[in-house]
Computed example of a mutant assay.
Amino acid sequence: MFKGSIVALITPMDEKGNICKNSLKKLINYHIMSGTNAIVSVGTTGESATLNQDEHLDLIMHTVELADGKIPIIAGTGANATSEAISLTKRLKNSGISGCLSVTPYYNRPTQEGLYQHFKLISESTKIPQILYNVPSRTGCDLLPKTVIKLSKLKNIIGIKEASGDLSRVNNIKNYVSKNFLLFSGDDASALDFMQLGGDGVISVTANIVAKEMSKICKLALDKDFNSAREINKKLIDLHETLFIEPNPMPIKWAAKELNLILTDTLRLPMIQISNSTKISLRNILKKINLSFLEKKN
């Protein structure tokens, strides 16, 4: 259903912190034109933790409307309370989304059985395809391969975004799930290696600003042309890494504003603008990259 370069879309805001729908339209069109394979709307990169549920749902629905069927929309529906994740998912019934991305319940530090029961109950509450999301550095819990394998047997759990950075998990999962179960990298810096080991693509932060190049890398990798993919990826390695010097999505929003993809780099507290030193580092990296990759300022 989904393969290749999937962008974890930032949420553009105006100077007062309200959703900027003009910038959202520009971003969506940018990804449609650049060959991005799908959009994750209001995932953790989209600042889901600082949006209330009505804003969260309104933003997803507006993204679906603006995409107009030209690109699949995957909704971020994870929460640290199982009931809240189910509520978000149920409210998106018949919304036009193509799937849900559900992050592990942060802060609670559930056991593996607790994680299994959490995702099982969500799965049983909907017919919408579900993609698991494991990012232990942000959530404080780790969805282990044995639990992923168990969850993969549930009919509408179709894949996982694996952002632990542990590349051994590709084989540890892939060897024990059906061939249709999808594995996505959640780490841009190692995404190409992840795909070379058998992954199906990346749910990418970097793609917010170099969508065409991330799409090319993924297409080449899926075609098993890893040498050509690596040549392109070499140009982006410093960018992949520098975008995570400070907590995501602070650096990527600044970079998107610098490239005129959004009007402001406004974030909601407790997220703040990046430091001047990080701005300098990012600006230098952007200058080193072939500017045909990027959205130039008017």
Score class of each variant (00 low, 15 high):
Ser5Lys: 02
Ile6Trp: 03
Leu9Lys: 01
Ile10Thr: 01
Ile10Gly: 00
Thr11Ala: 14
Thr11Trp: 01
Pro12Cys: 15
Pro12Tyr: 07
Glu15Arg: 05
Asn18Leu: 12
Cys20Val: 02
Ser23His: 07
Leu24Val: 07
Lys25Glu: 11
Lys26Gln: 06
Ile28Tyr: 02
Gly35Trp: 03
Ser41Asn: 08
Ala49Asp: 00
Ala49Tyr: 03
Thr50Phe: 05
Asn52Ile: 08
Gln53Phe: 03
Asp54Arg: 05
Glu55Asp: 08
Glu55Ala: 06
Met61His: 07
Met61Ser: 08
Glu65Phe: 06
Glu65Gln: 07
Leu66Lys: 03
Asp68Lys: 13
Lys70Pro: 00
Thr77Val: 14
Ala79Gly: 06
Asn80Arg: 10
Thr82Ser: 13
Ser83Asn: 12
Glu84Ile: 14
Ala85Ile: 02
Lys93Ile: 13
Ser95Pro: 03
Ser102Gln: 12
Thr104Pro: 05
Thr104Glu: 06
Tyr106Thr: 04
Tyr107Pro: 04
Tyr107Asn: 12
Tyr107His: 11
Pro110Gln: 15
Thr111Trp: 11
Glu113Ala: 14
His118Lys: 13
Ser123Met: 01
Thr126His: 02
Lys127His: 06
Pro129Tyr: 09
Pro129Ala: 13
Ile131Glu: 04
Asn134Trp: 03
Val135Asn: 04
Ser137Glu: 05
Arg138Phe: 06
Leu144Cys: 09
Ile149Asn: 11
Lys150Ser: 13
Lys150Ile: 10
Lys153Gln: 10
Lys161Glu: 12
Ile173Ala: 08
Ser178Thr: 14
Asn180Thr: 11
Phe181Thr: 10
Phe181Tyr: 10
Leu182Gly: 02
Leu183Ala: 10
Ser185Tyr: 11
Ala189Arg: 00
Ala189Met: 01
Ser190Val: 08
Asp193Gln: 15
Phe194Asp: 10
Phe194Ala: 09
Leu197Trp: 10
Gly198Trp: 14
Val202Ser: 01
Ala211Thr: 02
Met214Leu: 15
Lys219Ala: 15
Lys219Tyr: 11
Leu222Ala: 13
Lys224Asn: 15
Asp225Thr: 09
Asp225Asn: 15
Asp225Pro: 01
Asn227Thr: 14
Ala229Val: 13
Ile232Asp: 06
Leu236Gln: 07
Ile237Gln: 15
Ile237Thr: 14
Thr242Trp: 03
Thr242Leu: 13
Phe244Arg: 13
Phe244Pro: 01
Phe244Asp: 08
Ile245Pro: 00
Pro247Tyr: 08
Pro251Asn: 15
Lys253Ser: 07
Trp254Tyr: 15
Trp254Gln: 04
Ala255Arg: 01
Ala255Trp: 00
Glu258Thr: 11
Asn260Gly: 14
Asn260Pro: 01
Leu261Met: 11
Ile262Trp: 03
Ile262Gln: 01
Ile262Pro: 00
Asp265Val: 04
Thr266Pro: 00
Asn276Gly: 00
Thr278Val: 08
Lys279Ser: 07
Ile280Arg: 10
Ser281Thr: 09
Ser281Cys: 08
Leu286Thr: 05
Leu286Trp: 00
Ile289Met: 14
Asn290Thr: 12
Phe293Ile: 09
Lys297Met: 09
Lys297Tyr: 05
Lys297Asn: 12
